[in-house]
Structures are given as C-alpha cells and as structure tokens.
Amino acid sequence: MLDFIARRLVAIIPVLTVVAVLVFLMLRLTPGDPAAVIAGDNATSDQINDIREKLGLNEPIWTQFAIWIGDILQGNFGESFFFKKTVAELIAQRIEPTLALTICTLIFAVAISVPIGVMAAYRQGSIFDRIVMAFAVLGFSVPGFVIGYCLIYVFAIELGWLPVQGYVRIGVNFWQFLERMVLPSLTLSVGFIALISRITRASVLEVLNEDYIRTARAKGLSNRVVLMRHALRNAAVPILTVIGLGIAILMGGAVVTESVFGLPGLGRLTVEAVLSRDFPTIQTVILMFSVVYVVINLLVDISYTIFDPRIRY
C-alpha cells in the first residue's frame, strides 16, 4: 500500500513539472519584453530596467527557471507589485473564503447529486429521471454568475432573507458566516450537481447491465439490495473520478462566484491580480490551484483501492 502511494507520488512529479514550466513560460513567452508588460503602459525605462534586474530577466532562461523554481520550493513566492506584500502573506489572507466556499459546495453538491443520480438510474425513463436529466442539461447551460444574480435577486433583494454580498470570517461570527455562504455555495453547486448527478446516473446504469447484477437478481435479492449493495459500490470509482476532475470546475467557478458575491477569496484575488497585471501573484495562485487539483486527484486515485479490490497496490 505504501509502495502504491509512493508510486503515485512519483507519478505526479512530471505533471507538476510540466505545470511549473507552463506557468513559468507563460510570462516569458509574452510578445515583447516581460518587464515592460509587468511595468505597465506608463512606466519609465528606468522602472523597466529595475524590474528586469529584480526578476533576473538578464540571465539565461534556464537559470531564471532554476532560480524561480528554487525559490518556490523554498516557499518564497515573490512579492506582489500591486499589493506591496509577499505573495505568501496575500494568499494566507485570502484563502479562508475560498476554502469555505469550495468545501461547503462540495459537501452540499455531493450529498444532493449522488442520491439523485442513483434514483434517476434506478427509475430510468420515469418522470423523475427526465426531470433530473433536464435539470442537468440546464445546469450545464446557465453560467454560474447568472444563477448567482438570480438567487440574489430572489432571496436577497425581493425576499430579503439573506445578505446580498460580503463575507464574515468563520471565527468572527459563525451564524453570519453561514448566512453569507448559502447563496454562493448554491450558485457554485448548480453546475457541479448537474455534472455529478449525470455521471452517477450513467455509471449506475452501466453497472446495472453487468452480468453480476443478473446473478444478484437470480439469487432472489430485492431490487433495493441489488441497487445498494451491488450496483452502487461498483459505480463508485467512475463517480469518484468525476468528482475529482470536477474540482477544476469548482476552482474556476469560485473565481466567478467570489466576484458576484464580493467574497475576498483567492478567486477574487486572481481577478484583481490580472486587472493590475500583478504577475507573481497570478503565477503563484495558478500554481497553487494546480497543485491542489493534482493532489486531490492523487487522493481520489488512492481511494479507489477502498472500493475496488482489483486495483493493485
């Protein structure tokens, strides 16, 4: 088992290397002088030279990469030009709302969508199934920020049940924190619920066609037992996979959702950084999201072994 985890860990090294190279090259491959890009339109040539010096842009490109990656591995993510802080500080400051939002969404969405998907598969072709499928297509089709504004319009503006925007730290006032999490989480979960319920339905349907389900029926088991004990566990691996891959959607969605609801999280930070051309921040945030994504999918990979004894350690 440890051997298996070690192997999986080794396998993510090339992926992360590619990510690092891509993130690094993104800035270096800009048409024109990266220092000028960073400095912005109104910079003097002295300022540009200063930046060039500071970033080591006069060095050969591989030296630059080595220095950059070395810094990152030591936890030195550089300094934000715009916010006048180290990027590490900035991220520490902004991480809570994003974590809260994604975790709330993940829990809520999975709790809703898996049962829905199973039921839809079990009652394939029924009205319930059709409604779920229609909802799923709709969920894929309406952009998150539109859903967000609709929810704000109905629940915050018209009904006045919940606050429109803003964030209260979980440590400051838990109740207010929760109040402000409801609408953003709902918003972010719509697409995720659509995705997971669809894949759950499809996986369960596929498993229900397997020979061993026929065997289970031939044993005289009730439909409920066949579904819960035989079908669901076999469908777990594809469902888990999509939940893992769907984290990317969640992260992307967080950027938009945080902007709609004015949550001071990493997504909002990304947008602010882009608007102010704050490259060290952009690079670090993207790198961080990617590492988190890869690690989560590694955990998903490892968790397969719990559900499927055929997957070898």
Partner: peptide
C-alpha cells in the same frame, strides 16, 4: 501526454485568465 496532463492540471478558466492577462 505528459504535457497534456500538465495542461489538464491547470483549471481551464484559470489558464484562460492567465493567458488573457498576458496577451
């Protein structure tokens, strides 16, 4: 495929945001 894995590891919309910010 390693390059593709790397690209896939960056959440799509963030990658797009980063690229727009540069170009």
């Amino acid at each position: 495929m390693r390059i593709m894995d790397g690209l896939m590891a960056i959440p799509g919309i963030l990658l797009a945001i980063a690229m727009v910010s540069i170009w």
